[in-house]
Design a protein around this nucleic acid. Structure first.
Lengths: 204, 204
DNA sequence: ATAAAAATCGACGTCGTGTAGAGTCTGTGG
DNA sequence: CCACAGACTCTACACGACGTCGATTTTTAT
């Protein structure tokens, strides 16, 4: 939460700080890529953004808050795209579309998504953000499973529970694959799609 | 790697330091449970073990080394038990046995396993340990899948790739469930078992 | 143009890590 | 019995990173 901007929302001219804030997050993302969370120091971020540590603390209360804001910005992007995706009726098509979209997301934001997962435990706010995202995916998967004929409910062999497990499978598989290469991500996607299909009973 | 014990292996009388070393790891495990990795300070561990920080640094070179040793100790236990488990011929039985064993492992060592996963990125040694453990599980799952008639190979819809995805599914699902309760762990197990079975084409 | 708000800076206090060196305990060979 | 080596422990210190504070400058609105 940047310093003291109460009603930044409706404002015609952009405050100078808005640009700085963006610069800080961009720098943070870049540093995260080349040094990782631990090694990245607040001084580094500030320097990268062209200000001093003291100035950075005007915008964010801590290193964790910076990263949290970065995750929030990215996650918001995910939600936006999820909403925009039309829900196909045919389960097979829905699954294929979902997996394609997931590949895109991980290609674009793999780094931030990985750090979000890593910090979910230590930074409660990030954990909240990520678990909320997971819920979105799980309900989507649940819907597809049910439409494919899987019995609704939360018992171990019913749609909701299976959707959770499938969601975690996808998360973890993509997490690892996105550390390797785009090709690996593509292969991971195919594998997950196959398991999802057979779990939905759609194996022709 | 504790201080300078070159050939501690064959030795009848237990050095005083061996007990200390164990006390340190035990304390570390306890603190990990109640404070988490970040909040746990080297001073805390030393105090819990009844020595000063300086003394602790005689045994371990850093906080990370302490935790690494703890993970190593636990993981060694996992490998041991994995080796001891007889491989059932019948895929269905093998899967059921594997899941039961997995539940036991997470019930006993859930905490350390979770921290191992969390630190896999930041502490390379732990990452190594854990990925080696994962390989064991993946090869085991692969074997079962192949025995159930899944085509061998590393292509997306072949045994090896599917085994990876299933392993990550189990890891992540148990990771979350073990934070909740034993009941949740049991339910998670049932769900994973079901998906594994259908993926293996064993749904009667 | 000017006053309020936003933004920036440099210095400081704190905490946790890891290191250094000096001191103590314990068992073993002369 | 003694002296020595190696195991073990402690206190003190240096370093780095975080987060805070008050003073100061720049930007914005009227």
């Amino acid at each position: 939460m940047p310093g003291h901007h109460h009603t930044r929302s409706r404002r015609t001219t952009e405050r100078k700080g808005d640009a700085r804030e963006r610069a800080i997050l961009d720098t943070c993302e870049a540093l995260l890529a080349q040094k990782g969370y631990e090694a990245m120091t607040v001084g580094d971020i500030a320097q990268g953004a062209g200000i001093t540590r003291g100035a950075l603390y005007f915008y964010f209360g801590s290193k964790q808050e910076v990263v949290t804001a970065l995750v929030a910005r990215t996650v918001e992007h995910l939600w936006e795209r999820s909403r925009a995706t039309a829900q196909a009726d045919e389960p097979r098509q829905a699954i294929e579309a979902a997996m394609r979209r997931t590949v895109e997301l991980w290609n674009e934001h793999g780094l931030v998504m990985r750090t979000a997962i890593d910090l979910s435990l230590t930074v409660p706010e990030i954990g909240e953000l990520w678990s909320h995202t997971a819920v979105l995916f799980i309900t989507a998967i649940t819907a597809v499973l049910e439409r494919a004929g899987i019995q609704p409910g939360t018992e171990p062999e019913q749609a909701s529970a299976m959707a959770s497990a499938l969601c975690w499978m996808i998360e973890r598989t993509f997490y690892h694959a996105s550390q390797e290469s785009r090709e690996e991500l593509q292969r991971a996607s195919a594998t997950c799609e196959h398991i999802w299909l057979t779990s939905a009973g759609l194996t022709t």
